[in-house]
Amino acid sequence: MSRASEPPTPQALLSGAAITTFRLNGQFLTVADRLAAPAGLTAAWWQVLGAVLTEPLPVSGVARVMGITRQSVQRIADLLVERGLAAYESNPAHRRAKLLAATDEGRAAIARIGPGHTAFAERLTEAIGGRAEFAAALAALTRLSEALETLADEAAASADARRTGG
């Protein structure tokens, strides 16, 4: 049996998934920047504003939702507040960790992205082969993300146990 017909090794699959995901991330950021630009936003600003459209969140909560560092979100949040697109509100659950909330101006900026976002989503759905294909791709990506999170949590718990001798 030739090697070409054998399925890829787990290591090759992991590497391929990582490289493809990094490429997808770059592609999504490029598209998001193009869609957000007419509204005076960047992809990162759009992401942070989008996280607080329905309810105010602390910066750490936005970071958790987005899967990025609190420091990165803090820099963006400060810029959004400076430009009047978001505001800090008091947090009844934590006196020092203010809540970030979208302002009316921020909501209006996000609304201006809507038509272009809808048109691009429809073109992408068609290009990938329709809603069912797109839904299947999303489901696979979601399973991959959940598996990585579970394994990362297990690795962290194992490392903690080794560190504490437990």
Rank of each mutant, 00 (worst) to 15 (best):
R3A: 14
A4T: 10
P10S: 08
A17I: 12
T20N: 11
R23T: 14
R23W: 08
R23Y: 08
Q27F: 08
L29C: 03
L29K: 11
R34F: 04
A39T: 02
A44I: 00
A44V: 01
W45G: 00
W46H: 06
V52Q: 03
V52M: 04
V52E: 03
V52G: 03
L53H: 06
T54G: 13
L57P: 01
P58G: 14
V59Q: 12
V62E: 04
A63V: 07
A63C: 09
R64L: 14
V65E: 09
M66S: 03
T69M: 10
R70F: 07
Q71G: 09
S72M: 06
V73D: 01
R75G: 02
R75N: 06
R75E: 06
R75L: 09
I76K: 03
A77C: 10
D78Q: 10
L79K: 09
R83F: 04
A86D: 07
A86W: 05
A87Y: 05
Y88L: 12
N91F: 01
H94V: 11
L99N: 12
A102W: 01
D104Q: 08
D104T: 10
A109M: 00
I110G: 00
A111S: 03
A111F: 01
G114D: 09
G114F: 04
G116C: 12
H117I: 02
A121T: 09
A121N: 07
E122A: 13
R123Q: 06
R123K: 06
E126L: 10
A132M: 13
A132C: 10
A135W: 05
A136E: 10
A137W: 00
L138K: 12
A139Q: 15
T142P: 02
T142L: 06
T142C: 03
R143E: 15
E146Y: 06
A147G: 08
L148Y: 07
L148K: 08
L151Y: 10
A152Q: 12
D153P: 04
A155G: 07
A155V: 07
A156R: 15
A159G: 09
A159N: 12
A161L: 11
T164R: 15
T164W: 13
G166M: 13
